[in-house]
Design a protein around this nucleic acid. Structure first.
Lengths: 212, 212
DNA sequence: CCTTTCACTTACAGCCGTTAGCTTATGGCT
DNA sequence: AGCCATAAGCTAACGGCTGTAAGTGAAAGG
């Protein structure tokens, strides 16, 4: 599967005010390349340009350099994940156990449905160049803080409803729970077949949330 | 820091029967490149050759192609990790809690001391080419099975000594514990600074081993 | 001395990121 | 309707790095 470089149409140029649309198309092209199963080395400036149907230098109107593309992809997917988690929590109703499993399952599903995206988001390869729109600390903390606060919140609800053993450090428990989820999510995103029982996810959640 | 391409000595050629020595030197050079902090993209066939002080094509006498080098590195480090884990277990004495924490701490320490090595071992980027000495399933299961059996063994000892709650599936619990450790180890290997409390490792171990 | 092992030099073709300068469609203005 | 400034994207080209192939030299040791 080479996904056809054959560009049937030479792509209609964007209209006057809508030059910025191309930026989104570039990010989408990069994500598409990832999803096609090739690893992140397949996402080069030139391959992205080909996928988007534009000439390579046209990217420089929207991104400073190649790493910036990857950075934008990570940012977009981080936001998408955060939104999905909040949504899952809100749609789960008032029951704390339901909320907990909804959030955790949504997290795990993201990694399973988009393994390549998950890999670049948390695989730590989007270059720690400390310049321009740098993420690295601030933005990882952004999702970090956001998702972890959500998790701590749900854990607190579990304690309040009496289905989990309390703790003096809810945030620390949230971090531990997230680390467990991350371990499973990352491993699933990396290998073809996971060892161990199918319900290992539930075991992780049950143990790390101290459910009774 | 460019680590000096300046090869003072042109490197003494190996003696008659010892041609195979170069193979080890090549692997060591690749590992050295990793440890220098550059990511795995810095480990190219040519850079490895430069680091080892040999000409690039000389590698082909010992490795079929570039991915094979990475593969050999992963194999070597997998073995080293397995040995370290067994050693830690044997040196921990008979106390089950000590054994458990010795093994887990050793695992976590490996990832902290050699983050780049850990990343390529479990980051799933050493190309899933299904040919020649392929690892991918067999050899990951090798460490997988080995380390997981060890963990299950230690967990069983914890139950026997009455310091942990029993379970009907010890191997499943071992997998869950390993996933937690992996989550922490990988995250530490990837980001500069981890959120959360310092004792998060002990929390993971305590919760996932069902310690009382 | 002469064979065999070990490693080297040279070279090719392909991809990469990036710079410089050019073309073309768009849409407001006269 | 016609002009024409400008936004939007293109072509050509550079230097550098990559993996790999083909053929060459030198040292070791029987």
């Amino acid at each position: 599967m080479v996904t056809a470089v054959t560009n049937t149409e030479p792509r209609r140029r964007n209209r006057r005010g809508e030059g910025g649309k191309l930026r989104e198309e570039i990010i989408a092209a990069a994500v598409a390349l990832l999803d096609e199963g090739g690893d992140e080395r397949a996402v080069t400036l030139r391959s992205v340009a080909r996928k988007a149907g534009i000439a390579a230098p046209s990217i420089y109107a929207h991104f400073a350099d190649q790493p910036s593309i990857m950075l934008a992809v990570v940012q977009r997917e981080m936001d998408a994940l955060a939104v999905a988690l909040r949504e899952a929590d809100e749609n789960a109703g008032p029951d704390a156990r339901r909320r907990l499993f909804a959030v955790c399952t949504t997290y795990l599903d993201f990694a399973r449905v988009h393994p390549q995206r998950y890999r670049i988001m948390f695989g730590g390869l989007w270059t720690p160049s400390v310049d321009d729109t740098s993420i690295t600390d601030a933005d990882l903390d952004s999702l970090g803080a956001e998702a972890l606060t959500l998790l701590a919140d749900v854990l607190g609800a579990c304690v309040d409803q009496g289905i989990a053993h309390g703790s003096d450090d809810l945030y620390g428990d949230a971090v531990a729970l997230w680390l467990g989820l991350h371990g499973l999510a990352h491993q699933r995103a990396v290998v073809r077949k996971m060892p161990g029982p199918a319900d290992v996810g539930e075991r992780l959640i049950t143990a790390l949330a101290h459910l009774k």
